[in-house]
Design a protein around this nucleic acid. Structure first.
Lengths: 105, 105
DNA sequence: TTCGATTTTCGATGAATAACGAACATAATA
DNA sequence: TATTATGTTCGTTATTCATCGAAAATCGAA
């Protein structure tokens, strides 16, 4: 049961976070997780195959935005609360704008 | 005196804006322009050559973030105020965080 | 231990990106 | 008109990125 690597958020730069959010698939993932409910990979309905989804999850994880916890054959994904300490209000602001301008998948 | 093309901001997506801001050089350009003073290209002190700077300015312009006005042999750059209508508070929020976490070039 | 479910990793590919120097375009000025 | 100043465009290179399918890894259950 190897848990994936989560970088310390203090080492993460703003440009990396913005870059991670600058993709529609990833923004959709983050928007889905914003309700606080942990979800497994399979719970996302996105127009990409599994391996591509896995790639996007890795990008989000290495940008300090999401956390993955392995549990059996599944992984549970959540937003990382520490991101709020590092960049207060950023995620909420972006998600609010995303919800207004696109129908939030 | 050909003026460069500025896309209508209504056609610009959030992911494109975030993508444009997800580069240190471009974020620095935007931060410099945030005081409202128009500046020419040469007014930026950045670790890139002219042509690369021109490239980054084009990316920012096509993302609806900055406007260029040609005047003689120079161009004057400003932030586009309409961006605030499309994505209220976004630029200010990002710049505030950028100012806290990096010494703002 | 064998099978099925879930996710990651690998390898490949095509597109996009950042960077540079050189050449070009344009406008003000000598 | 020739020169200078300022930016842009072009061609190139190297890197990164998004995507896919196939294979591998991991774990639970039969």
């Amino acid at each position: 049961m190897k848990q994936p690597h989560h970088p310390p958020i203090d080492g993460i730069g703003l440009t990396e976070v913005l870059g991670a959010l600058s993709d529609p698939v990833r923004l959709s993932i983050v928007a889905t997780l914003a309700d606080g409910e942990p979800r497994s990979c399979g719970a996302f309905e996105l127009p990409v195959v599994k391996s591509t989804l896995s790639h996007h999850l890795k990008v989000l994880r290495e940008a300090g935005i999401i956390a993955s916890r392995m549990d059996g054959t599944r992984c549970f994904l959540t937003l990382r609360p520490e991101l709020e300490d590092r960049f207060p209000g950023l995620l909420a602001h972006v998600l609010r704008l995303a919800g207004q301008t696109s129908p939030a998948a």
